[in-house]
Design a protein around this nucleic acid. Structure first.
Lengths: 151, 151
DNA sequence: ATTACTGCAAAGGCTTTGCACGGGT
DNA sequence: ACCCGTGCAAAGCCTTTGCAGTAAT
């Protein structure tokens, strides 16, 4: 569990043009403190104990606001579930086929994977498909053994 | 447009334990004849001219049957849209950020990308995350220039 | 004081399902 | 003849939205 931030959470939220409400603080802290990638519902349940009358609609609205302002990122895994992530830097994911749980591939390994992609092949993709590649998502799917694989 | 199959479509459908109806033939041919990855709705519109009273529910049901029987594959792209694909072999995708359109990265290039992933790094992922990696999805996101980039 | 955010409930898409009919085997 | 597959409409998710009240600036 990461519990410290480069910038205190309230300032971080404010500096992104959002009002710093109790709900947003709690949600951001929860989101930033896990390397799993909770769905809106999962996040709702994570914070429920600390925010008794938080509504699910607010979770959705808040997450959307976070994404718009660049505080978080939303993405959909191969099986269709929408996940949120306060870790902005690009990294690969691993998803358990059975549970659908999604975790980060550790930073160093992610970086190695991304660096391994041959640049000339990407250039060829751009040429063949008449496009400009801006991002790469790598997702591994398979089976988790044992307990919670949170790194 | 690919219009020939290793096995004639009806046999292919039957051999997967499905009844070969007109709707299924039309849908499978349409799906297999494009390298874009239509959504259920898009496929519905593609075949509408050739199947006047096909219902959208049937498209959904049929696609699900195809996926269950291994004739097709379903996946969700990073922006949450569900796409279908009769190309079973593993390949990378490119998605246009604006339109959401998704196309295959040509086979050869896909293969090169997949082959470039360092095996030892994957082994380390398995070790660190206590998991077994079974599949890899690579998705590029960016901008398409010009017209339809169907390869 | 202003205006953004919240919670509730209702509305909205997309997808699935129940059921009677029709078509494949 | 059997029974799976189809079409329609209705029901079910998940997510967004409208609105009045509340809290942040």
């Amino acid at each position: 569990m990461r519990t410290t931030f480069l910038q205190p959470v309230p300032e971080l939220i404010c500096s992104h043009g959002l009002r710093c409400t109790r709900q947003r603080r709690v949600l951001f802290e929860a989101l930033a403190s896990t390397h799993t990638h909770p769905t809106a519902e999962a996040l709702f349940e994570m914070v429920a104990p600390h925010a008794p009358d938080l509504s699910l609609a607010t979770v959705y609205n808040t997450l959307k606001a976070f994404c718009r302002s660049g505080l978080a990122r939303e993405f959909t895994s191969g099986n269709g579930t929408v996940h949120f992530d306060a870790n902005i830097d690009n990294h690969a994911h691993f998803q358990d086929r059975r549970s659908g749980n999604l975790v980060d591939v550790p930073k160093g390994l992610s970086a190695r994977l991304l660096a391994s992609l041959p640049k000339d092949t990407i250039a060829q993709i751009e040429a063949r498909l008449h496009c400009k590649v801006e991002q790469v998502h790598i997702e591994f799917v398979g089976q988790s053994h044992a307990g919670p694989a949170v790194v």
